[in-house]
């Protein structure tokens, strides 16, 4: 694990999300957004332990996963701004952000909607005899959807190469997990499908990375599905208009003590100086601001982009090939 690279990725995510937050507060973005500030360690730790050709299926809170996978933040800004230059031509926006060239099969606006899609990608890998894996992020809230149980079951009976990563941030929008589940741990549910699981500190990128690395390799070698439950916390509200009345400021403060970024800085100080860290921070902050400026100067979609493309054409080139 290259701690410096991880730190830079995590910082990029943090600054990106803070910029998005700022844009919303100024009314410069449409729709809604779900920020992952506080949860950066799961994004960089999990994705950093994967190969480029591994598939990722993400959630509504997916900017971090996508940035960790190596996406161009300018094109993510473009997508959020509804610009033609966005990864999805501005049609998808924050919750429908797919980057096929990165094997990133989409953030997802339906809670639990990505679970079976990831199982499908894993089945595809298995049928094709490849040694990549599929990774599915989901929240503890999604574990109450039927798709969670159905997908884990299919992954188990078909021994699919899939890693389920539960980012348990304790709240499904405003609903505390302990109010909607008899137990605090999602990992317990994996046991009923014969899927091995591990519960880890999701605020520690190193811990997340090491566990993912080990488990992913086992899956890659035909070990079948596994589940990681990373206990984490979102520092901001569920979406842009959330007064956070369902949790206390004290609880928030306690979790902020576990902020993954200072933890990484502490590690970094063993190899570089505080001054160098400040330089990195300034440089990444500037690159995020620059990316936004480039994106916002882009073009809005034309009427063709709005009205065309509901149907794929026969001659469209798909990985399936055409007949």
């Amino acid at each position: 694990m290259d701690i410096l690279e991880f730190y830079k990725k995590a910082l990029t995510i943090r600054f990106f999300e803070e910029k998005v937050d700022w844009l919303f507060s100024r009314g410069l973005l449409g729709g809604t957004t779900h920020l992952c500030i506080g949860q950066e360690a799961t994004a960089v730790g999990v994705v950093g332990a994967l190969r480029q050709d591994d598939y990722i299926v993400s959630t509504h809170r997916g900017h971090g996963h996508l940035i960790a996978k190596g996406a161009d933040i300018t094109k993510i800004f473009s997508e959020l701004l509804g610009k033609r230059e966005g990864y999805c031509k501005g049609r998808g926006g924050t919750q429908h952000l797919c980057v096929m060239e990165l094997n990133f099969l989409g953030t997802n606006g339906i809670t639990g909607g990505g679970l079976p899609i990831a199982a499908g990608a894993a089945l595809s890998i298995k049928l094709s005899g490849e040694d990549r894996i599929a990774v599915c992020f989901f929240g503890e809230g999604a574990s109450n959807q039927g798709t969670f149980h159905e997908s884990l079951n299919m992954a188990s009976i078909w021994n699919l190469p899939i890693l389920f990563v539960c980012e348990n941030n304790m709240y499904a929008m405003s609903t505390r997990f302990s109010d909607i589940s008899k137990f605090d741990d999602v990992a317990l549910r994996a046991a009923s499908f014969g899927i091995p699981s591990v519960i880890i500190d999701g605020m520690d990128a190193g811990r997340v990375f090491e566990n993912t690395k080990k488990i992913a390799e086992k899956i890659r070698q035909g070990g079948g599905p596994a589940l990681i439950e990373a206990k984490t916390y979102r520092f901001c509200g569920h979406s842009k208009s959330d007064a956070r009345l369902y949790r206390t400021r004290e609880e928030e403060a306690a979790w902020k003590q576990k902020d993954p970024l200072p933890k990484m800085e502490l590690k970094l100080l063993e190899v570089i100086s505080q001054g160098e860290i400040e330089v990195i921070k300034r440089s990444i902050k500037a690159s995020v601001d620059d990316a936004y400026e480039v994106a916002v100067a882009g073009e809005d979609p034309g009427v063709e982009e709005a009205l065309e493309g509901a149907y794929a054409q026969r001659e469209d080139l798909l990985p399936q090939g055409n007949i």
Binding site: P116, I117, L123, T147, E150
Partner: peptide, 27 residues
């Protein structure tokens, strides 16, 4: 035998499996 796959009674999710398969190179 490998490509005709009998599924559990999970219409919602095996349809999702079809989506995942189709996005990654299968009809």
């Amino acid at each position: 035998p490998t490509r005709v796959i009998s599924t559990p009674i999970s219409e919602g999710s095996f349809t999702g499996v079809a989506v995942g398969l189709s996005m990654t190179g299968y009809r």
